[in-house]
Design a protein around this nucleic acid. Sequence first.
DNA 1: GCAATCGTCAACCATTTGGTTGAATATAAT
DNA 2: ATTATATTCAACCAAATGGTTGACGATTGC
Lengths: 118, 118
Amino acid sequence: MDKKLDAIFAALADPTRRAILAMLLEDDMAVTDVAAPFAMSLAAISKHLGILSDAGLIARDRRGRVIWCKLEPDGLRAASVWMQGFGQMDVMDLDAFEAFLETGDALADQEGLENQSP
Amino acid sequence: MDKKLDAIFAALADPTRRAILAMLLEDDMAVTDVAAPFAMSLAAISKHLGILSDAGLIARDRRGRVIWCKLEPDGLRAASVWMQGFGQMDVMDLDAFEAFLETGDALADQEGLENQSP
DNA sequence: GCAATCGTCAACCATTTGGTTGAATATAAT
DNA sequence: ATTATATTCAACCAAATGGTTGACGATTGC
């Protein structure tokens, strides 16, 4: 139960992984496309995605030979709850965030990347 | 500027350090008293405090031979700003948090520990 | 069938991390 | 002055982290 927080904060502690999360906030992406902007190997990015996935911050979904990565809407909840207890302050509206991710603009213009045939 | 976030999230990724922060939320504490509940050496705790301090999450203030540790009210700001941008949501009211720390109950009953002569 | 693409796995490497112990420093108390 | 207390420092250690490369398994397209 503490392990979850460990994993989340450790995942957030790396700038590459934070950048990946920021990219996924705008669009679901294939692993190769996630890796493209970074000056490191695909295998390294694959490891980062594994860490983000283990922390519950993203999910990976295989479609054909392409694996699509997307944000896990509930992923930040544990961290937010801890921060809430820490600061005794208003924390974020995670339910609104989930709604935002699932129905909102973030995932709307996915055709910016190549289309996979359904 | 990214390094700051690295340091903050890395600091939060360790359960001992999160526990220390939770303790300091209730009271300013001397290093020895911080270390007391943990099953590790004082030197190890001293290192953890150094990491928290480098991350800007706590401040250490020497008074006599005792070093008092207290939360740095502004310490979580960068992390909160990042999360805010990430989720596009309210994260926390840090100004209220600062007010809470500086004038509120948290630091009020410090006489629970031994008094240092002024 | 055969070749190209997508992604992971395994082995390796250097660096960082989280802990230990023992010595060193600074202040306080007797 | 001596002794005790509070804390850090330095050297060391095992394990984890972040990266590399090359081989591998799946899937697609010709």
